[in-house]
Design a binder for these strands. Sequence first.
RNA 1: GGCCAGGUGGCAGAGUGGUUAUGCUGCGGCCUGCAAAGCCGUCUACGCCGGUUCGAUUCCGACCCUGGCCUCCA
Length: 467
Amino acid sequence: MNQAESLVLYNTLKREKQVFVPQDPERVTLYACGPTVYNQAHIGNARPAVIFDLLFKLLSRLYPKVVYARNITDVDDKINAAAAEQNVTIDVIANRYSDAYHTDMAALGVGLPSIEPRATDHIPQMIDMIERLVANGHAYEAEGHVLFAIESFAGYGALSGRDTGEMLAGARVGVVDFKRHPGDFVLWKPSVEPQPGWDSPWGWGRPGWHLECSVMSETHLGETIDIHGGGQDLVFPHHENEIAQSVCAHGGKVFARYWMHNGFVTCKRRKMSKSLGNTLVVSELLKQANGEVLRYLLLSAQYRQPLDWSEEALTRVQRTLDRVYGVLRDAAAKYGPFQAAQSPGDKFMAALLDDLNTPDALAELNSEARRLANADDADAARQSAGALLAAGELIGLFREDPASWLAGDTEGLDDALIDQLIVERNTARKERNFARADEIRDQLQAMGITLEDVADSTRWRRASEQG
RNA sequence: GGCCAGGUGGCAGAGUGGUUAUGCUGCGGCCUGCAAAGCCGUCUACGCCGGUUCGAUUCCGACCCUGGCCUCCA
């Protein structure tokens, strides 16, 4: 059986699920729009990172070679603004926040892509692409700007379902007199000090935002890539413009064969966005929950659906993960240690292969945990635990040791004192002095420690309710 | 105004033309000195109105509602 044949993806371009057939099975190419590094990543920014990280891992199981590029936008007006405000150069800002991004993503179990290209490392290639577009009549120079002429590309609007002729209707497109069509977008624009800039045939300037993705995917992945992903808000204009640039620069060749777009993380059902000021920063969330909790929550809805973020949801996921970790610990004590199996169970795989149906995959994972809890011999336990851990490896969960997971953040706790109290309590229990025993348990509970008496010993974990 | 999603049990969230999602919570039980943990059981779910069908939450049509894109945005 060939699992690769059954990967199905929803293609935004076609508005339907399609069987994924790579251009070249020996080299599958994936490009996802990465962060613009001008401040800290919020949890909404983390969703595509987690989704495409999972897709990358899944594809890597199916094909011998997968090249995944996730860019870093390190030249942008917002970076300029941040740099000016803090009186530093843009690379200081870009480096600071790309480092922060890496730290945050690592905590969420997001691995590094195969390539992480930066816009400023590709200026010559950008200029080259602009020259090609000007030469073949798809772009024109006007007042120091170079603009892409959307009317020169018949396919413009296909991805987002827009009609070039009706683009004036909304009347929100910035009308600038030197544009031939209001929808024409900037490939290159002039810079003035202290803005960053590079020499070009059109004078000293900087690239437009959309250009970098076309150029970097061309440079690192080739003219036609298999999958291009990003957030739903990038469909228009960003991805529409990328298509226009790339297709026109490549003599009409298809740019990306499958387009995938993730839904938003919402807060009280409203899109979380920096302009609305309702963002939750990843590094802050990591102070109240383990990265796996955040990852599980991000995966708890199918990627195209909106995901409403809340404290309650966070608590819920924490409990779910605690339970599975508890099962893992108990079963390991009885039948362990366990090792991940070669591959997760068929149902788990089938769920992921169906357009990354992560809620279904997680449901299967929970069912496997139940099977593990109910296992009544070592073989059954090993099999369930193996499948569970293999699923965890693929989806990025259960990477921690169960005991330390359940102990939680032990900072500020005095292990020796806890152990001493437990010994004291067990002595009391042996003497059937239950009043004293319960008193000690209450004392520990007040310290945030919950006791669990098992067969012939007593263990503890972090209390699930914290103030 | 144009385009695109979606409305499922107390909550979150999959899915299906007729059969148990899964998780969290509540309730009952097993276990326990009592708890905790785990397990078992359980709570009249599919926005509204028509249509197709032997049968629709699942297909078709209308309607209502919610959110998103059309400007930077994951």
